[in-house]
Write a protein that binds this DNA or RNA. Structure first.
Lengths: 188, 188
DNA sequence: CGAGTCGTTGAACGGAATCAATCGTCGTGG
DNA sequence: CCACGACGATTGATTCCGTTCAACGACTCG
């Protein structure tokens, strides 16, 4: 089921009966928990192609609010239907487990990156992880500005560090592409 | 199956046949990926009571190395056995899905916290999330030093901000406990 | 009663965010 | 077809905040 939301419009509220899980097709949705005295804390921001409220499968009500941060297109999937499918078809259940496992791994990696304080080191580790293991090529399907966001850095910091690294010859830059040179290895 | 590892001992290597998934009982295990030229990048550090290499369920080989960072006790579970159980018993599969979903949610929340630059704000959001919704009480089952680590802050920073907040009267501190006062709400 | 860990505070430094300005590029519509 | 606007990329200057180093008190546990 496809639905459209405007900026600021709520998809569901904390306490609503949890009947659907969702996927963002376009736009962004913030998951926020209401705290004491009506304040809210953002728990996650789901972007395009992400699913959210998966935990609703196992809960009678939603435990947070979901609000669109811009005009947003969302797919809603009936929780009961999904549960039925998951219990009747072990292949699908397993494939869902695989997907979740891979999500856990990727989230853990992101978190581990954030434990690196130095911007330079964080970028280097990111590049090493993202690089093709043989060729040392990192290809980007999104602007650097988004990468900066992922890395938890100001875009300026990322630009600066990259151009420094370029000057030092430890990376080479092409359009939508960064190539790690052999020199990087000694630096680390 | 229980196994013991010494500091620096490897549990498995990248490329080894993936026959087991694991849980850390005591100690720590670092998951690291080998990159070009034999360097390694840490992808995750699993601590006590955490599972790791769950993605091995769906892979023939491990995609990273696992190395004990201290004397460590690990439980190993046969991948085939687990797969058999998951496919034969949908209840267990569902419960595993639940566990993974909850892990995803919690990891997303941690990551969202890290997107907050200001130490003070990050701590406040953390406290609000961790607080009992009615009473505003946060109870700790581990030292603040570990909380600081979780938050990605130097312990000194956490101590300082907490004592500032205490002085401002927006929190009250007791042993293993922080109470959020009504005053906090206006400050945010 | 010591050893080790946790908690706390001070001082100084450095590095990343921020503000600001400019350029390049792409798509769009008049 | 070109002007315009939007957004990404880039560089400079400045500020500020969190890390780091250091030292010390408190507490727990063997």
């Amino acid at each position: 089921m496809v639905k459209n939301y405007n900026d600021g419009e709520y998809v569901f509220f904390q306490g609503d009966p949890a009947d659907y899980i969702f996927a963002v097709k376009e736009g962004q949705v913030r998951l926020e928990r209401s705290t004491i005295e009506g304040r809210s804390v953002s728990m996650h921001t789901a972007i395009a192609e992400e699913t959210f409220a998966e935990a609703a499968l196992f809960s009678k009500v939603y435990h947070c609010n979901a609000v669109a941060l811009m005009p947003t297109v969302i797919h809603a999937y009936s929780k009961n239907q999904i549960l039925k499918i998951l219990t009747s078809n072990t292949d699908i259940a397993l494939s869902y487990i695989r997907q979740l496992s891979s999500q856990v791994r990727s989230l853990r990696t992101s978190l581990e990156l954030r434990n690196i304080l130095s911007a330079r080191d964080r970028i280097i580790q990111y590049l090493l992880l993202a690089a093709h293991p043989e060729t040392g090529v990192v290809e980007f399907d999104k602007p650097l500005i988004d990468i900066a966001q992922e890395l938890g850095l100001a875009k300026e910091t990322l630009y600066r560090e990259l151009s420094k690294m370029g000057a030092q010859g430890i990376i080479k830059r092409e359009k939508n592409k960064i190539i790690i040179t052999a020199d990087m290895i000694q630096i680390i």
